[in-house]
């Protein structure tokens, strides 16, 4: 009886919520929102249940890649403060379980998306999972300071998949939605890296702040913010853009560039003095920046229903 009790006490058996945590629910919310926008602004209508299922399986595929990311990165997740409480480093889920869980959900999500929507969208989801797990997590994350730049593509694919669910293909609109998230990702994460510096350094992840210094990171944030603006504004000229989107994008880009300029002008002493207030505010605003761009696209699609959207 004593033996049985000790087995129970030391059992790593996870709760249902631990498996949900493996799917990175917070990242999933961004995937759901951008994929749903891609689906809703597309010029082809989809049956509501098919659309619901498609978004669900895109989210599940994103979650599966999150579980595979946690399986591969368990060693560095144990070191970083931000990730120490994830299910694997916390000892709630074993690495093998996370691998099996991630692989099974990847297969289910891809096949079900192919069956529910179309096989182009299914293949696109499979490629996205491959890109995030193999290209970003296994290859780039630990080998180059450009990890965030290229890895950001994985997070930028969901609106293209949503668009592909409706149209069965790719177009300039979906590519520009991809570019919007792709170019937004580096300044967003580098701002985070500026005020979370010790974590990445301790885990030996070659973040730009560690390899090229913090001044270079500040310059990179400004350069990428400037490069992002034309792609964001170009969406206004496409079939899914319009005056509402253009006005929103002009204001948001002006504010984002102003924030990047403030970051560029500061040195470490000033940042340390006020607890990285400007960097933290820029990071917070970057979330609103992306969210509001997609809300503006949805607004254009909504207005179009009444004959008001677009040009």
């Amino acid at each position: 009886m004593t033996d049985t009790t000790s087995v129970f006490e030391n059992s790593p058996e996870a709760e249902f919520g631990d498996y949900v945590a493996l799917l990175k629910p917070r990242v999933m919310s961004l995937v759901v929102f951008t994929a749903l926008t891609g689906l809703l602004v597309a010029p082809v209508s989809v049956h509501p249940l098919v659309g619901f299922a498609a978004i669900l399986f895109i989210a599940l595929g994103g979650g599966a890649s999150g579980a595979l990311n946690m399986w591969w990165d368990a060693d560095i997740d144990r070191i970083m403060r931000r990730t120490r409480n994830r299910p694997i480093p916390a000892g709630k889920v074993s690495e093998g379980e996370a691998l099996g869980f991630g692989l099974a959900l990847s297969g289910i999500s891809v096949v079900m998306l192919g069956l529910a929507a179309n096989w182009f969208a299914g293949a696109f989801l499979a490629f996205t999972i491959f890109f995030y797990v193999v290209v970003y997590t296994m290859w780039l994350k630990r080998s180059t300071p450009q990890n965030i730049v290229i890895g950001g593509a994985a997070g930028a694919f969901p609106p293209m998949i949503g668009w592909a669910v409706a149209t069965g293909g790719i177009s300039v609109e979906s590519v520009l939605m991809f570019m919007l998230i792709f170019m937004w990702t580096p300044p967003h994460f580098w701002a985070l890296a500026l005020f979370m510096k010790s974590d990445y350094a301790e885990a030996d992840v070659p973040m730009l702040t560690v390899t090229h210094g913090r001044k270079a990171t500040r310059t990179h944030i400004l350069v990428y913010t400037l490069l992002l603006a034309p792609f964001a504004l170009a969406l206004a000229a496409t079939s899914i853009g319009g005056p509402v989107y253009l006005a929103a994008s002009l204001v948001l880009n002006a504010m984002f560039i102003a924030g990047a300029l403030r970051i560029r002008r500061r040195d470490e002493a000033a940042a340390e003095a006020d607890g990285y207030r400007v960097e933290k505010r820029f990071f917070g605003f970057s979330l609103s920046y992306l969210f509001l761009h997609f809300v503006a696209l949805l607004a254009e699609a909504g207005l179009a229903q009444f004959g008001w959207g677009g040009w």
């Binding site: 249902f16 498996y19 249940l49 098919v50 299922a53 669900l56």
Partner: peptide
């Protein structure tokens, strides 16, 4: 373990309902 099984049961039931609807 019961909580996990219950959660899995609910997820499977919803999945079946979704596939039926599709």
């Amino acid at each position: 373990r019961f909580g996990r099984n219950l959660g899995l049961g609910i997820v499977l039931a919803l999945f079946v309902a979704l596939v039926f609807g599709l």
